[in-house]
Amino acid sequence: MSLISQTQVILDLAAPDRHEATRTLATTLVADGRCTDLDLFLSDVRKREEQMATGLPGGIGIPHARSAGISTPSLVFGRSREGIDWGAEDGPATLIFLIAAPDGGGEAHLAILAKLARKLMRKEFRQALTDAATEAEVVEIIEREVVNA
């Protein structure tokens, strides 16, 4: 299964805070069985956020966890025009990447998430996602830059 499909893209994410935003994003993983236990996964993500907020300079939020509630390494992409506070010092996050990894999964599967994380540091990659007009375009960018790169 690939990392992301169009149902895992929310171009106009609206939520009062980062926990609600995470729930909205994570819910997209339930329908096709990528997430088998939503509450468990959300609590794992929350634990990680409580350790240290995952907001990063430049308007990025990367909530993530390895969780027994996840069956397939997955990415959910959310974009928020007004931004959601993700704990970064320089302001709210407009690009949110929810990264879900199975607990104790094989290294090969996790390598793709490693590649994704490296891409997040690339300005061109972030700009392309900011500019994408459709869900299909977002999936196409990620497939091209991360999965098939």
Binding site: L56, R66, A101, L110, A114, K115, A117, M121
Partner: peptide, 30 residues
């Protein structure tokens, strides 16, 4: 799964931009 690799990328890029060579060992779950 995330910060480990982002940090590695950031360091490698920054070193390259400043004209240095840098190799990073990512002690992550992959």
């Amino acid at each position: 799964i995330a910060h480990t690799y982002m940090a590695a990328e950031a360091l490698e890029q920054a070193a390259k931009d400043a004209g240095h060579e840098m190799v990073v060992e990512t002690q992550g779950s992959a």
